[in-house]
Write a protein that binds this DNA or RNA. Structure first.
Lengths: 133, 133
DNA sequence: TTTATTAATGCGACATTATTGCAATAATAA
DNA sequence: TTATTATTGCAATAATGTCGCATTAATAAA
């Protein structure tokens, strides 16, 4: 199916790229300057995923987050990497850290979903040494 | 809050232990011989998690799966490990493979949720060499 | 520039997962 | 045997994500 350029797609992709993080549909809906329907956001995001522009992460909260593929070089086919979810500022970021593992005989991996949760550097330092902003 | 032994708890824990896998509330409800309400299953499972008897995994389908902590020795405080979700037989198992990673300065990890998806050895061999059962 | 094609969108409805309040039940202590 | 209160079932609810359908609009064709 041929793609068309629309304000919606541009806005979503721009937002994802600028934020540099993985965002939920809700975060996108809030952060974006034009009103976009929830169903549309999902359709756009899934299309991006299908086209390889964006990748999806499912966190332990069971929600889907979407991030551009990737600040890094970009030509390599996107090595699986860890994601970090800060439970304080509720954002998810892609880590440089690649995911390494070995599997028992006969197993075939199709996708990798690895999320570490806790406090990012900002929030952990806030908690220990600073006041909240 | 003090715990009480009930047929429900016994049945759920026994099922999880016997299966050796991570099960969803739905799988538990189906597999168990006595009828148990969905809400009750979740409450029991979350209680087990809280008590450290069971751990929770969230797969890329966004669903929660629960597994006993663990066939292995059991005295060590349960090292984070990979989980494998077979998309064919739709089961999740704990892998021996531990999760290793390093984090940027200042980050603090509270929980680890790593799920690999694909075909387990049984299903991948069925696909390539055998008929379906 | 105008028209035709069909991808994209908004809306409402829906399926699913998970949680919560409340009254009834039952496990344990007294 | 009785009292206490953890546990359970039920119904209601919140939230996430998907789908069908009619309308709109991006792009190609005339």
């Amino acid at each position: 199916m041929k793609r068309r350029n629309t304000p919606t797609k541009e806005a979503v992709l721009k937002l994802l790229a600028q934020s540099g993080k993985a965002l939920s549909h809700e975060a996108i809906e809030k952060a974006i300057d034009i009103p976009i329907n929830r169903a549309t956001i999902y359709r756009v995001l899934n299309q991006f995923c299908h086209d390889g522009t964006v990748h999806k992460i499912v966190a332990e909260d069971g929600k889907q987050y979407f991030a551009v593929c990737m600040k890094c070089e970009g030509d390599a086919p996107q090595e699986p990497h860890f994601h970090f979810r800060c439970t304080s500022c509720d954002s998810i970021e892609c880590l440089k850290e690649p995911v390494h593992f070995s599997l028992p005989e006969g197993y075939e991996v199709a996708s990798v979903n690895c999320v570490l949760s806790g406090l990012c550097s900002k929030c952990s330092s806030h908690n220990s040494t600073c006041e909240n902003e």
